[in-house]
Design a binder for these strands. Structure first.
Lengths: 107, 107
DNA sequence: GCAATCGTCAACCAAATGGTTGAATATCAA
DNA sequence: TTGATATTCAACCATTTGGTTGACGATTGC
């Protein structure tokens, strides 16, 4: 038995899929364009997109021969609520994220 | 190659492990006591605890024949920062965002 | 010393993951 | 119509995951 949280966290537990989600923050994208930066087959990316779709993190809409991928950040809400319940981690804001970036990138 | 975020999210992608973390929110516990509410073998719980330890979400300290499990919520910080960024990224300055993308794509 | 307790290890198993290639299906464009 | 483009499907493969059981090494208490 696999819950929504299971599939959400499992979908996020892969760098390729997280990178795809980050790309979709900028704009909706076609499958081929999603695949372009990665050094793996289109079929592999297609599978990753299926996993993201099953988790509700993206939706896919076919228009003509192109399937557009759209980020659905609301699907992360339950995961955020769960993970945030661990207290000490006060809700983050924009400043926290920027500090994270600066620290991670050493800039 | 498996990043810290990979192992954190993967560790959270299982209901048994999330339940264990929730239990440890109340207090430190011995392995046997952690296992008690679950209908699976002690060895299975031991494996789950190994996965949580590898992810840094708990630490284990052996005193006598009892191994105490302690929650380490700080290990969730990177995950929560990542996941929360999906509500806030519109506000980011473009350079930081692009570096973030590049880093993700490089992993 | 001896038996019980705590926990892991080892071997095994079924199922899922993450990737490949090659064929198939749809759609567009010339 | 023919050919190129977009995407998935099917079959396969190696590795990991989540579980089992049984044996084992420590540690404790009587």
């Amino acid at each position: 038995m696999s819950t929504a949280l299971d599939t959400t966290f499992a979908a996020l537990a892969d760098g390729t899929r997280r990178a795809i989600l980050a790309m979709l923050l900028e704009d909706d994208m076609a499958v081929t364009d999603v695949a372009e930066p990665f050094e793996m087959s289109l079929a592999a990316i297609s599978k990753h997109l299926t996993i993201l779709t099953r988790a509700g993190l993206i939706t896919q809409e076919k228009r003509g021969r192109v399937k557009w991928c759209k980020l659905e950040p609301e699907a992360m809400r339950e995961a955020i609520v769960w993970i945030e319940s661990f207290g000490q981690l006060e809700a983050l804001n924009f400043d926290a994220f920027e500090q994270f970036l600066n620290k991670e990138l050493g800039s």
